[in-house]
Design a protein around this nucleic acid. Sequence first.
RNA 1: CGGGUAGUAGUUCAGCCCGGUUAGAAUGCCUGCUUUGGGAGCAGGAGGUCGUGAGUUCGAAUCUCGCCUACCCGACCA
Length: 470
Amino acid sequence: MANFQKLTPRSEDYSKWYNELVVKADLAEQSAVRGCMVIKPYGYAIWETIQAELDRRFKEKGVKNAYFPLLIPKSFLSREAEHVEGFAKECAVVTHHRLMNDPNGRGVVVDPQAKLEEELIIRPTSETIIWSTYKNWISSYRDLPILCNQWCNVMRWEMRTRLFLRTAEFLWQEGHTAHATKEEAEDYARQMLDVYADFACIEAMMQDGKALQAGTSHFLGQNFAKSFDVQFLSKENKYEYVWATSWGVSTRLMGALIMTHSDDNGLVLPPHLAPIQVVIVPIFKKEDDLNKLLVKLNPIADQLKALGIRVKVDTDEKYTPGYKFADYELKGVPIRLAMGGRDLENNTIEIARRDIQTKETISIDGIVEKIQSLLEDIQRNLLQKALDFRIANTREVNSYDEFKEELKKGGFLLAHWDGTAETEQRIKDETKATIRCIPLADLPGHKNEPGVCMVTGKPSAGRVVFALNY
RNA sequence: CGGGUAGUAGUUCAGCCCGGUUAGAAUGCCUGCUUUGGGAGCAGGAGGUCGUGAGUUCGAAUCUCGCCUACCCGACCA
């Protein structure tokens, strides 16, 4: 065990650090199929807490879960040309429905007799099948709004993949709502944006200064209603097209979570999302010693559990305490308690926090309350640290030259832009930077005022956020 | 999808250039003893279609070609 391998430090190779961390922390691994990953139990447990929390918040907004099929008739995708343009190049297509034994040898081949009349597309997203269904559900204004969400997998045939950040198959939720009025739909899209923003950052900054889109919420107008002819009879007895929104987050959020907080020793998890929030490591020589320790430790664990805290008592004899310490650090467990013979005599316990890597030996009196507040401290600290990092790496730039220079340093750049797609494209072509957000309110420390576009000199309503992104 | 690199034990790799005993090491795994306050020690043991398919050859982990997969660079993508 002397030659265990440490993670590649972030400063040496950020990308390599990320890849190693995902695998070593037992979150996910590659599968036999290109671009598809196996999410391991520890990684999936984190996804489940994310799911549970978001699902609760969606339901508070009146959303109901449903499930729509994986396979979409090809013809559906022909109905909304603009929508399909984004996905056409990365769709998996089902063309046959039967295999047969290879007449020339071993194995199986596709039965040419079993060709489908209409090919089916594995969903890259579900708008088309959902709107073709909504058409049947909606006839009157009394049927609106419809607020549905589904948790499912989708597939996009990506050329270059990375675990969690960009995989060919990924898990997500997609909400699709139908409303009677434009105002209501716009308001709803905005509300869902707030749900996400409250939960995580929508456009998050990673430790290497790049941006990562973690979630989206769109007001879709009447495009889908028109493509799929979804109309309702209003109070005034007139036919009108419904208004749509869609919003989603995916397992990409896991990548954001990992890259936002973790360090060279491994994962760092915010307590709210950690599958194990507190791990207790007894340090013992003989079973007898362990039993004596457990007399003290089990009641602590029980009290923590009663408070809804996820706690694990690690009595495994196979690994030494040192090994366990390092391993739980790699896995990002927020708080570690350790108790040995000395502590037993002194009525003390060692408490270590993962986020700032400190430990102290304290009396076990009041330990439960201490842990409870410490978990909140850690949660706050991690959020604050991420915010501080973002603020420290968000800068105003006033000329295109300055923009190009500052871009090399990474982070978010606040710059004036004339609002045209042409200028945005030119900036992208010349610098690779893209507009990440158009702030709806002042960002901390930056007052949003009108100005002139850094590229064209035309008027600008306010600064927008540019960054290099994943 | 283009260019580059790689694939040998669960993992990290040596062997390949220059084809020829029974394919090695470390670590992990299993058993026993001993240990346990920051990745313990000793002894024994199990573990390999050398990514895959073809070709060259008396003989292929080693040479040639196709395919698959991963990583890096690009293109594409939200």
